[in-house]
Design a protein around this nucleic acid. Structure first.
Lengths: 225, 225
DNA sequence: TCAAAAGTGTTAATAGTACACCCATGA
DNA sequence: TCATGGGTGTACTATTAACACTTTTGA
């Protein structure tokens, strides 16, 4: 049986992850400054090689956990990049992922330790290899998905104000949204629940805090923003 | 520099292709009955191993050309499947693709020669490995894409009737469409051009034949069906 | 002459968009 | 007291959905 396989070449397999964060009305990506060759000193997406004992999803989760310490992060496959010369060091095929995480409550020391930095998505430095294209596709996919499935909440704290939520979607879409129309839509989604807690940090008056109820969402999964 | 890579495992890389065809109001897939191990005698998607001198897109085109003799076929990546035990013979990571092709004018001798057959998509046999899941995702992606980009024409002959086009979309969506509303929408798309040719095979009266003008589409790329 | 598919408009319902003012609070 | 962000409803427009009959022709 092994005869069938042995004539074929084998490839290094990697994953690279576009990690989105949202804070202060800005979308950012978590980027690494490489301290090893090839392309030492340049900026790249966090990534790593796939091991024998894991599939690519597991590898992506492992890399993200090593970098951030976070375990239950929303992740999704974007596409696979396999051009022959994409990595000048060796032939490496890479599966691109994207992840959404809540920046707040994320340890700044870990960042330093990994030579990592949040960079505004609209002001990215040049990235190595085909990583800029990975980001482009990840962003496209995330934008599309965010409009039809409630994944945006992964970028916010558990409790959030409607202003924060609207600001998030304005940033994802890159265009302003009408406040009253936005709130009308949210009000129709019963799984976005108003709590009795008030956020006083954003305004003198204070804004009601809301939460996403995933369980309730599954009962009436209609979403469109 | 090579030090960086050499510790990591390498993997066999394959592509598998969900090949859609449309005829007589039915969507079908081109499937192979395997005449080699593992899983000899079972049905599978057409596929093959990626070689050193090609990326996965090229591998997918090569496999499709070997099977069908066709060169310029619409293809798109679906996702990468990498579960450790997905192929019981060896660890193989596979990139799934889907392709759309016009069944008419396709050589039936080639089919026999490759042990291939068109199978109705709603009555598929069990497929090997994770191929059923590949088909599910391919179908999902194709359905979504077909609604927002004019890719459906790849499944039809160059000249087609509006009845054929509607039947195609009804099959893709799995639900009937209103004839008048459908034709109203088509009429608004200037790049779907009525020709002076008439198809007499489908009815006594004869139906006008239309064509998709890709060049005109790029000037006003609005599509929604 | 009739069966079978081709072709054709109008109306009602729904969804989406535009728009401006008062409220509550802490500094 | 006033500056700041929080909160609210209505009228208009655009899009989508529902619906039935006449035409043409070959057998």
């Amino acid at each position: 049986m092994t005869l069938y396989y042995q004539d074929h070449p084998r490839f290094y397999l990697a994953i690279d992850c576009t990690i989105f964060g949202f804070s202060d009305g800005e979308l950012s990506l978590l980027l690494l400054k490489r301290n090893f060759e090839p392309a030492m000193g340049e900026w790249s997406l966090p990534g790593g090689f796939v091991q024998e004992n894991e599939n690519t999803d597991a590898a992506a989760r492992r890399v993200l956990a090593e970098l951030t310490g976070l375990e239950d992060v929303f992740m999704e496959q974007v596409a696979t990049f396999s051009d022959i010369q994409r990595d000048p060091g060796e032939r490496v095929v890479s599966v691109a992922y994207y992840a959404l995480l809540n920046v707040g409550g994320y340890d700044p020391e870990l960042l330093q330790h990994h030579n990592a930095r949040w960079m505004n998505i609209n002001v990215l430095p040049p990235l190595i290899f085909d990583h800029t294209e990975m980001v482009r596709q990840a962003r496209e996919l995330m934008k599309q998905k965010a409009g039809t499935e409630p994944i945006g909440f992964n970028l916010l704290p558990k409790l959030f104000t409607l202003t924060q939520l609207q600001s998030l979607y304005e940033t994802i879409y890159g265009e302003p949204l009408d406040k009253r129309n936005f709130r009308k839509r949210i009000a129709e989604m019963d799984y976005i629940e108003k709590t009795d807690r008030i956020d006083k940090t954003g305004s003198r008056r204070g804004a009601a805090l809301y939460q996403f109820n995933e369980k309730a969402y599954w009962k009436a999964p209609k979403f469109k923003l």
